[in-house]
């Protein structure tokens, strides 16, 4: 954003290639405007994303409670988190909970989204209405979602137990039985699959009708057409949804926080820590147990883990997707 050097301005003399010569200055002016235009976004990135991230990296090597001076402890936060089960008794538990949640919720979400997208793509009338209805769970406030699902899962009055009762299946105490907590949470995530559904729908619209027609002429039935044409054509979409879905699932926080907090409940992550996801655990150390340094270290362990998982996905899934 410095002033343009005078030397170049003298080159402005009109000549046979005057138009071409004029361009650098015009371009420079465009640059200035361009910088001004992206300045807010850039400032936002630098001030609210990059600077805090770098600070967090620094604090992850310190013992810091937000109030007193941070004291340098080197790698102690990292080694304690990984190996000291007195200081962090539930760290590995939270890792396990999060992995279990990711492995359940991502496939369930994708299947549900795919089925919904196929159904929406098949109907001629009212598809806008159904698209709206299926998308509604995504735009509903998390607090309301939490409250509604607490009622649905209620062991005494819950609709889910009533529905199971119709088939003779005994009612469960969903959110208070350690083994059922993660499946119950994954089911809520599946219900909120609207964004994946919209992306799948866009992918379906992008498959040329001529390919489907050719398959029909070749005598392919609906099942074959799905597995041989639609599904392979959607592979790039599926790949994108798997990668973003895994990243989001590993960071799940809001839903768990809402479900396991509120009047008379505490945020300690459900029965026997069965709903203590990684980021909830991190949040508790940052804001409840005054260990901001350790919380920063946790966030960087998660960052590295997500980068590794994503790299592996690109290595092994993308080739298949291409």
């Amino acid at each position: 954003m410095t002033a343009p050097p005078l030397v170049e301005q003298q080159d402005l003399a009109p000549g046979p290639r005057g138009g071409a010569r004029r361009r650098p200055v015009a371009r420079r002016r465009d640059h200035l405007v361009a910088w001004l235009l992206i300045a807010p976004a850039l400032a936002y990135f630098l001030v609210f994303l990059l600077y805090p991230a770098l600070s967090a990296l620094y604090y992850s090597f310190t013992d810091w409670n937000l109030r007193s001076e941070a004291s340098w402890v080197g790698l102690a936060n990292y080694t304690d988190l990984l190996f000291d089960d007195v200081k962090y008794p539930h760290f590995w538990k939270s890792v396990g909970v999060t992995l279990q949640y990711t492995l359940l919720s991502v496939p369930m979400t994708l299947v549900a989204a795919m089925v919904q997208a196929l159904l929406l793509n098949a109907i001629r009338r009212g598809s806008n209405l159904f698209r709206l209805l299926l998308f509604l769970p995504v735009v509903t406030a998390e607090a309301a979602v939490g409250a509604i699902w607490r009622w649905l899962y209620d062991p005494q009055y819950g609709l889910i137990n009533s529905a199971l009762g119709l088939f003779g299946i005994p009612g469960q105490n969903w959110l208070n039985t350690p083994e059922l907590v993660i499946p119950a949470l994954a089911f809520i995530a599946t219900w909120q699959c609207g964004i994946s559904m919209i992306i799948y729908l866009a992918g379906l619209k992008g498959i040329p009708g001529s390919i489907q027609e050719a398959a029909i002429i070749d005598g392919a039935g609906p099942w074959q057409r799905f597995w041989r044409v639609t599904f392979p054509m959607l592979r790039p979409t599926t790949f994108y949804l798997v990668v973003t879905g895994v990243i989001a699932a590993l960071q799940v926080f809001g839903l768990v926080y809402v479900i396991f907090s509120g009047s008379g409940r505490s945020v300690t992550g459900g029965p026997e820590q069965s709903g203590l996801t990684y980021v909830l655990h991190l949040y508790l150390f940052a804001f409840r147990y005054d260990a901001m340094g350790a919380a920063c270290a946790m966030s960087f362990i998660l960052l590295v883990f997500i980068m590794i998982v994503t790299a592996l996905q690109f290595r092994f899934l993308k080739r298949e997707a291409a």
């Binding site: 539930h90 505490s266 300690t268 029965p271 026997e272 508790l284 409840r288 147990y289």
Partner: peptide
């Protein structure tokens, strides 16, 4: 004890739960 909330949440609460279950 400065660490009391952490002890309460992370050590005593799980102990209570393991006895109750």
């Amino acid at each position: 004890v400065p660490q009391w909330i952490q002890i309460n949440d992370e050590i005593i609460a799980p102990a209570i739960e393991s006895a109750l279950t």
